[in-house]
């Protein structure tokens, strides 16, 4: 997906990524399967919030992802005025790419040798 993005999208995604990496902690759980769940849980909900869609919020774990997503969405709005000008489809593309990239940064491309340890 990242290959199909133009430079503008790339730079916008980099802004979002930069905020997450500098300010958030949820993406750094200690094992790869947890990171997968965290990235999916928080970023999907962030995307839903940004698109004004309903957010799944049933279990305590869901809710915990949701609170990180709420604050993230607010910060994105605050720091990235261009978000307001994007339509839903664009936001979805952007957030999809972001999630893919976050998975790469924190899981698939990660150099952290402990991610695959089977125990906590």
């Amino acid at each position: 997906m990242a290959d199909q993005m133009d430079d503008l999208m790339k730079s916008r995604m980099a802004q979002l990524e930069d905020y997450i990496m500098k300010n958030c902690l949820w993406q750094f759980h200690s094992r790869s399967w947890d990171r997968k769940v965290q990235n999916e849980g928080v970023l999907t909900r962030t995307m839903q919030i940004l698109c004004g869609e309903p957010v799944a919020n049933e279990t305590p774990i869901d809710k915990c992802h949701w609170v990180d997503a709420v604050v993230l969405a607010e910060e994105f709005h605050r720091r990235c005025p261009w978000l307001a000008g994007m339509d839903k489809a664009e936001v979805k593309t952007l957030m999809g790419a972001l999630r893919e990239h976050m998975d790469y940064l924190t899981i698939d491309g990660s150099l952290n040798l402990e991610l695959t340890d089977q125990h906590y």
Partner: peptide, 20 residues
């Protein structure tokens, strides 16, 4: 202390919220 939070999540379903 993340270990105990991870285990509390797995065993009791209590979510882990990392804060500063």
């Amino acid at each position: 202390a993340e270990y105990i939070c991870n285990e509390l999540r797995v065993r009791y379903g209590i979510p882990r919220l990392d804060i500063d």
